[in-house]
Every structure is written in C-alpha cells, then in structure tokens.
Design a protein around this nucleic acid. Structure first.
Lengths: 334, 334
DNA sequence: AAGCACTGTGTAACCGATTACAGTTTTATG
DNA sequence: CATAAAACTGTAATCGGTTACACAGTGCTT
C-alpha cells in the first residue's frame, strides 16, 4: 500500500500539498490538483487511517455496543443505526457486550482505544453510576439505548418499559383475568425490573393482590419459558393468563402448555413482549408489546450525530410501548 | 487519556521501558516492572491503538463484511465468528456490504484502511475475478463465506447450494409432485443460481421438463413470495408444489396461498431454504433446507486464525445441506 | 585483570498522516 | 509602478507508540 510520500514524489509536490488535495483544501491550484489526483490514481493510494486518526485525534467512526450480535432484535437496531451513520460518511464499529459488567467494560475500552467519535450503548450489566462516570470522563457523545438514566436523560433513547408491563397486564385484566402470572427476564436487568413494576401496578390498580408466587424469574430465552411453566405446576399455582416479558419466553411457554393439552387463547391467555417477527407466525398468533427497535437504532445514531454537530434534527427520545392484540389472548372463560 | 510519555515520566523510566512492560517483553527487571505498572494504573493508561497500529503495521482486528446487519441469518454468523476471534484476544469489526458491487468494495476498502489482519467476506455482488484480484493484491488471509471460487478453494467456507436445490426438489418429486414451480432469489447472486441449477437437475433426472414459465425470480423477501404467487396466477400456471429459495419467500407464498383458500401441505406442498427460527412456527411448519449458519461464522474465523498462524485446527470447509421435513410438504393428492 | 555473555535500560529513528508557519508567486489597487 | 493582499506551496514539528542499536552493569571464565 502506497503512502502519501510516494504520491508526493511522483507528483513532484510536497506531502502537505497531497494532504490538501486529499482533504479538499481550497488553496490548491487546479493544475497541481490534477497532477496529484493522477499520481494518486496511478499508485492506487489509500490514506492510512491510523496515521490520520493519530494526527487528527479523530477516527470518523462511531462505536456501538449491543448485548449480542445474534438475534433479530439487535440486528434491526444495528441496521438502522448503520444506515444513519453511513449517511454522514462515517463508519460504525459494532462489538458485543455479552451482558456482564466486565465484558461490557472491555467492549467500551476497545472502542475508546479506537478513538470513536461517539458511542451508542445498549448495555445491561453496567450500573447507572458506571454510565455517569463514563460520560463524565469522556468528552465524546455517549448515547444509551433502551435505557433511562435520569441524570443522563439527554442522552437516552428509551422505551417506557414500566408502561409496557402495565398495558400488557391491563389488557389481560380487561379481558376478565384475575389470576395472572408473570415470567420475567433476569431481574438484574433494568428493563425486566421495570416491566415487572408495571405488572404490579396494573394488578394493584385493579385491586388484585401482587403475589410473589405468581412471579417466575427466567432468562429471556425460549427454554426459559418452558421451564417457567414447569415450575408453576410444581408450585401448584393456578392461573388463567400469563405475562411473559419477551416473545421468546412466551413461545416457550406456549409450547409447554400445548404439550399439556391446554388450548392457548381459549383456556389460557398469554401476552409476550418485543413483537418479534416470529410472533406473527405462532399458532395462535401471539399478542405482544411492540418495541420500535429500528427507531431505537436510528434515533440513537441521529442523536449522536446531533451532538457531534453534524446535523440538528429534532428527535423523539422516549417511546411509548404499544399493544398488538392477536389471538393468544381472549376473554376469560367463566 | 494519558500517553506513554506521561507514564514514563511518572515511573522515572524511558518510554521504551514502558512499552516493554506493556507488551510483556522479558528483559525488564521485576522492580521497574512494578514501578511502571503502578504508574500505568495511577494514570489509567490505555495505549493508543492507532499509534500502535501505525508503528507495528498490525491492528489486532479481523474484519468481516456481511450483506446486511439485520436479520437472524447474519446475526448467528457474526455471533459465532466473533466468539472465535475474541477467544484469541483479537477483535472483530463488522461492516455491511449492502449487496452492490460498489458498496461491497467500499466496505472492504474501509476494513483495509483499518489494516485488519484478516478478512471474512460474505459478499454477493463482487465477481469471482474481483475476489481473486483482491486476494492477489493483499497478503492477509481472506476468507469467503457461503461462496465457492475454485481458484480460491482453500479460502472458501461454503455450502453445496446446487445440492440444496436438488434435494429440495427431489423431496417433492419423491412425494409424487410433477408440476413444481421455483421461486428464486435475485439471479445475480451465485447461491440463487446454484439452487436453481439443482432444481433443474432434479427435474431432468426425474424425466420432467424444465420450464422457464415455472420459474419466478424474486428478492429473498417475504413480500417477494407473495408477489410470486400472484404472478403465477396471472400466467395461469398450474402447480402442485413450490420450491422457494429461502424461508422468507416461502412464508410470503404460504400467506398468499392461504388467502386464496388453498390448504398448504394438503393441496399444495412448499419447501423453503435456510431453516430460519421462524420456520418452525409457521402453520403448517415449513419443510426447509438447513444451512449451518453458525458453523459458517465459526469456521470462517477459525480458518482465518489458522492462516494467521495463531492455531492449527483441521477444518471442514464445505458443508452439505440437509432437508428438514415438516408439515408443509405432503404426498401429492391424485 | 582482561574478555565475554547476559541482562537491563535509554536514545532516537521511524510509522504516515496533519497543520502551523514561513516563503514565494500572483493579483489587485491606488 | 509600488505595494499590500490573496493564492499557492514547502518545511518541519507533531500525534503516540515500537524497536534497532548503543551502552552500562553484573557475574563468570580463563
């Protein structure tokens, strides 16, 4: 790979001039510009991004941390974010945080070492304090996705998860259900805790008791939903409806119920959360809470670009969850 | 962010010594090593990766290009690849190629500018020649995922797509179908062409005619499947079975057929391709061709690591597709 | 005591760009 | 025509590391 020096030699100018041409500086005559461009082309010159970043202290990249690279949820988010970032000529570097405090820190360190110009974080394990400190000790824009930290409200793109848990539960209550169980995600995650709080609030508002025996902490995975049903049966816990904190667990629970010969919708209602693509295809189709995942990615990127001074869009930062009613929920049979 | 110079000053040694400590060089006494480590800790020193990469001409990162960041297919692949790469202490940078020749080139250029130590490519639009030239003009390992270029056989992790198209079609023939249509992906993509060739070979082997009117070129998307059914009806083309070249289009076609009141499995059989998660949840569950996506990612990474001399695993480079029979295909009604 | 190998540390060139500053040429103006 | 302003170009310092080489001390051999 050729260097700026080789180009300058071939074009018979100084490296400074070549640099000016590359960066579109206006104080270069047409004649020399043509010469330099020709030389660049002849050598197939590509600027060394490390040298550039070292000299300018900018990298023209935005860093993103997601929980997992796999899965449709993050896929959509990354897609939308990359789209916006690329539109400004910058690039997106994505790493996965793997849901533990130390790996999330690693991922962030890695991106910081790359001198990213902004950071889009979807992290679960880092505490609010970690995030506040991170923001304080760096002067690049740091955006938090699907998370709300009051002190950092300006940098948060979030969904009202408490409200999501509330409307999911309310929907079941409206259908006449009174024995409603909740299958939660890992409760160290803030979103799982918020959804649970919403579940509780809906119950209490309806004058129903919140009973810990009706809450099963699980893992956001399909098998977790299956296991949860098993645990409820061992507890001899009766119920006519289920709030699952994501679609994966809802589907697992549905499968377990089917195996027990229980008709979903008809006998037992279930509502999921996330509105994943597959929830439209289950039998019966799953009632769920819609999260605007793509919007998250897009807004996070836009917010970062705003803060970098590259644009100035007005943005919605907090989204409201929305219930998508399908056939897995029905009026309670008497 | 503090620099090596500040550390050296605080520890009262030269920058060279600090560098030696950071890189674990053995010719440093215990005493100075302790001093330096203390100074590093006190300043929260993080080496600047650009300076390091510039000086060493290595970046400790592996680059990956995928068609789209969204979608379960690539998600799984990225996940598996990152897992392997990270296990060797390196990092994975992912960019999306967006399926056009120029954007794929851009993505590769971007990664090359970052001096990636290896390249994992899932590209569709670049030609074989492009890839051969790319390999020739760079001396880092370049791995091709889900693609087979004879000249670069050593660097290809691939699936026998022709065989996949063949067994999908053969399955329908075995069930007694004779009027089999094929909904293809964009035919500029090699895998779509290969699957179509397999479809044709199966027909011809069974003594059935290959008829272009039975082939609909589509776009690998759900809506494309829907449109394809529409086009078949306009052509007044009769059929009892469908080979769809991916699950998305298969699902779209199923929906279109359902709307027409046609019972899938019972009246019309359909087989998909990819074995996406959601194909288990459709009604009826979709018969499909399984692709070991995660294996692709993992093997690609492992192959790259092999070529970098970091390990020496023996690897399977070419996978065989596998039919997953579910209820969307059934014996032809007479 | 001289010679030598080995260990530990520092000096300074180098990687490939950017950019402040200075110097030169061209153009505009009174 | 003198001269200031504007346009263009080059020199060299700088970013933050790595590493070849030089050099100094220590201990061992002869």
């Amino acid at each position: 790979m050729s260097t700026i020096k080789e180009v300058s030699r071939l074009a018979n100018v100084s490296v400074a001039t070549v640099s000016r041409v590359v960066n579109g500086n206006k104080w270069v005559s047409e004649a020399t510009k043509t010469k330099v461009l020709a030389a660049m082309k002849e050598l197939g010159y590509q600027p060394n991004s490390f040298a550039k970043a070292l000299a300018t202290n900018r990298s023209d990249t935005v860093g993103m941390v997601v929980s997992e690279l796999g899965g449709a949820f993050f896929g959509e988010m990354m897609y939308a974010a990359e789209d916006r970032v690329r539109a400004t000529g910058k690039h997106l570097i994505i790493t996965s945080g793997h849901d533990t405090r130390s790996t999330e820190k690693d991922a962030i360190d890695f991106l910081m070492q790359r001198q990213v110009d902004a950071l889009l974080l979807h992290v679960d394990a880092l505490t609010d304090d970690d995030l506040i400190q991170l923001t304080d000790s760096n002067n690049i824009p740091i955006i938090l996705i699907n998370r709300f930290v009051p002190e950092l409200a300006e940098q948060c793109i979030s969904l009202d998860n408490e409200m999501g848990g509330f409307i999911a539960t309310q929907h079941l209550i409206d259908l006449g259900h009174e024995e409603i169980v909740c299958i939660t995600g890992p409760l160290f995650k803030v979103d799982a805790r918020a959804r649970l709080a919403g579940y509780r609030r809906a119950l209490e508002k309806a004058g129903l008791v919140y009973d810990e025996n009706r809450v099963i902490e699980s893992n956001y995975q399909e098998q977790g939903g299956q296991i949860a049903i098993d645990r409820l049966r061992r507890r001899e816990q009766t119920f006519t409806a289920i709030v699952a904190q994501n679609d994966h667990m809802a589907i697992g629970a549905m499968n377990a119920l089917k195996q027990l010969g229980i008709k979903i919708g008809d006998e037992t209602s279930i509502v999921g959360y996330d509105n994943m693509v597959m929830s439209r295809y289950t039998e019966p189709a799953l009632t769920t809470i819609h999260i605007p995942v793509a919007d998250f990615g897009q807004r996070a990127a836009d917010l970062a670009l705003n803060m970098m001074g590259l644009q100035n869009k007005t943005l919605v930062k907090r989204f409201q969850p929305e219930l998508i009613a399908r056939s897995s929920t029905a009026v309670r049979k008497l």
